[in-house]
């Protein structure tokens, strides 16, 4: 749209202004001044075309140029079409006020519209008929740029609104995707609990499991720790493995267990699946421990090892295995010891 306006301006410059300047020389008090104004306005047009910029200084130059060009015309020839400076200044005004509020352009065009009648009046030729003819001819000069300016302003408003609506829609879509993700996460967590927690709760509520039974209480302790770990998994923390282990230990300590927890080596963050596999043996052994336990984490460049040693019955030992994390029993004499190792590279331990 700006390019189209620029094309119109250049056409006015060479197709209207230049022929008028050449053929109407006899109407001017000073043809030289008219020629200088033409050159200046042509220069401004070139600058706008080359730099695509808007500028207050250029706007003032254009307006002064139009005033000077009009002043250089014999006042009695003002009614008619003595030069194209008015047309050009109006179009340049549209270009130089591009993107500004419409009332600024209206003010500029109105000022341009008033120049010729004022000069006519100052020359003492302001008869009603002459003024009316001038008003009508000038209306065609300033009307078209005004219409273009209004159209540009309306289009800009529409673009702004459309952008805002598009942004809002994008936000809604993002929120929707996040909500879906959250829902999927929750379902996945619930699926994790259904295998162990739900049967336990069902057994307790149905009377099939006796809360006085040690085994049942041990299962309850383990499930409480699993749920606590599940909550801890969603906390924002720089060291999730330690955070989740502490969650498991906290549950055990609430039962009165004395737990010593020692961590050595720089922080490393195994993926969630590996963290669960690393904490699971700790959770199982702590749930069955009678009075004391020691949990250690040793982190080296290639491995993360989590060990637990506690006064728990051997029956509480988790299954040994070599999955994502390898789990082994420690040959402790009178205590239960279990170790889980995760390798950074994913190779079997």
């Amino acid at each position: 749209m700006r390019l189209a306006t620029l094309v119109i301006t250049v056409t006015v410059l060479f197709g209207l202004y230049l022929p008028m300047l050449v053929t109407n020389t006899w109407m001017y008090r000073s043809p030289a001044v008219e020629a200088v104004v033409f050159v200046v306005l042509a220069g401004v047009t070139a600058v706008i075309g080359a730099t695509n910029r808007t500028s207050r200084v250029l706007l003032v130059v254009v307006f002064v140029g139009a005033v000077v060009a009009t002043a250089a015309v014999e006042p009695r020839h003002l009614v008619g079409s003595p030069h194209g400076a008015d047309d050009l200044s109006a179009w340049l005004g549209v270009l130089l006020l591009w993107g500004r509020p419409i009332h600024v352009l209206v003010g500029y065009l109105a000022a341009g519209y008033a120049v010729a009648p004022l000069q006519l009046w100052s020359a003492g030729l302001a008869e009603p008929e002459a003024l009316a003819r001038l008003a009508i001819s000038n209306f065609s000069v300033f009307g078209l740029p005004f219409a273009v300016g209004v159209a540009v302003s309306a289009l800009r408003r529409m673009v702004v609104t459309a952008t805002r609506i598009a942004d809002e829609q994008e936000r809604h879509r993002t929120a929707e995707v996040m909500a879906e993700q959250l829902h999927a996460d929750r379902q996945q967590r619930y699926a994790g609990l259904t295998a162990t927690t739900v049967p336990l709760l069902a057994g307790l509520s149905g009377g099939g499991l006796d809360p006085a039974d040690d085994g049942v209480r041990q299962r309850c302790a383990a499930e409480a720790a699993r749920m606590r770990r599940l909550l801890a998994e969603h906390d924002d923390t720089p060291d999730p493995l330690l955070h989740e282990l502490r969650a498991c230990i906290e549950v055990a300590e609430r039962r009165g267990l004395v737990v010593r927890f020692a961590v050595m080596g720089a922080c490393s963050v195994p993926p969630l699946g590996a963290r669960r596999a690393l904490t699971e043996p700790v959770l199982a052994v702590l749930s069955a421990a009678r009075s004391s336990a020691r949990v250690t984490v040793a982190r080296r460049a290639s491995t993360v090892t989590v060990s637990v040693v506690a006064d728990a019955p051997a029956s509480a030992a988790p299954n040994e295995g070599k999955g994502l994390v390898s789990v082994t029993r420690l040959p402790c004499a009178d205590r239960l010891g279990v170790r889980a190792i995760w390798h950074h590279t994913g190779e079997p331990a």
Partner: peptide, 20 residues
Amino acid sequence: EVDVLLEWFQCESKDTVSKV
């Protein structure tokens, strides 16, 4: 040497380390 250090850290019992 690293193995021995880590086993000792985790087991706290030299008998256990010796078996492992």
